[in-house]
Amino acid sequence: MAVSDYITGIQHVGIPTDDLDGTIKFYKDLGFELAGLFPNGDNRCAFMRFGNLTIETWEGDPVTKKAGAINHISLNTTDVDKAFAAAKQQGLTLVDKEIQSIPTFWEHGIRYFNTLGPNRETIEFCEIL
Rank of each mutant, 00 (worst) to 15 (best):
G14A: 13
P16G: 07
P16H: 07
P16F: 03
T17L: 00
T17S: 12
D18R: 03
L20P: 12
L20F: 07
D21Y: 09
T23L: 03
I24F: 07
K25H: 11
K25T: 12
K25P: 13
K25C: 05
K25E: 03
Y27C: 01
Y27T: 03
K28M: 09
F32R: 10
F32L: 04
E33Q: 13
A35S: 08
G36L: 03
L37V: 10
F38L: 06
N43Q: 14
N43G: 12
N43R: 09
R44A: 11
C45I: 13
C45W: 02
A46T: 12
F47P: 12
M48A: 09
F50T: 10
N52D: 11
L53M: 12
T54W: 00
I55H: 11
W58H: 15
E59W: 08
G60I: 13
G60H: 11
D61F: 14
P62T: 11
P62A: 04
V63F: 00
K65H: 15
K66H: 13
A67E: 14
A67P: 15
A69M: 12
A69Y: 08
I70M: 04
I70G: 01
H72R: 09
I73L: 15
I73Q: 07
S74D: 02
N76M: 12
N76Y: 03
N76S: 15
T77H: 00
T78G: 01
D79K: 06
D79P: 10
V80K: 01
A83D: 04
A85Q: 13
A86W: 02
A86V: 08
A86N: 06
A86R: 05
K88Y: 00
K88I: 01
Q89W: 10
Q89C: 11
Q89D: 14
Q90D: 09
G91A: 01
V95W: 00
D96L: 00
D96M: 01
K97R: 14
E98V: 06
I99S: 03
I99Q: 01
I99C: 06
Q100C: 04
I102N: 15
I102L: 09
T104V: 11
T104W: 01
F105P: 08
W106L: 04
W106D: 04
E107Q: 13
E107D: 11
E107A: 10
H108Q: 12
I110S: 02
Y112I: 01
F113E: 02
G117Q: 04
G117L: 03
P118Y: 02
P118S: 11
P118R: 03
N119A: 14
R120A: 14
R120G: 14
R120I: 08
E121F: 05
E121I: 04
T122K: 13
I123S: 02
E124A: 08
F125I: 01
F125P: 05
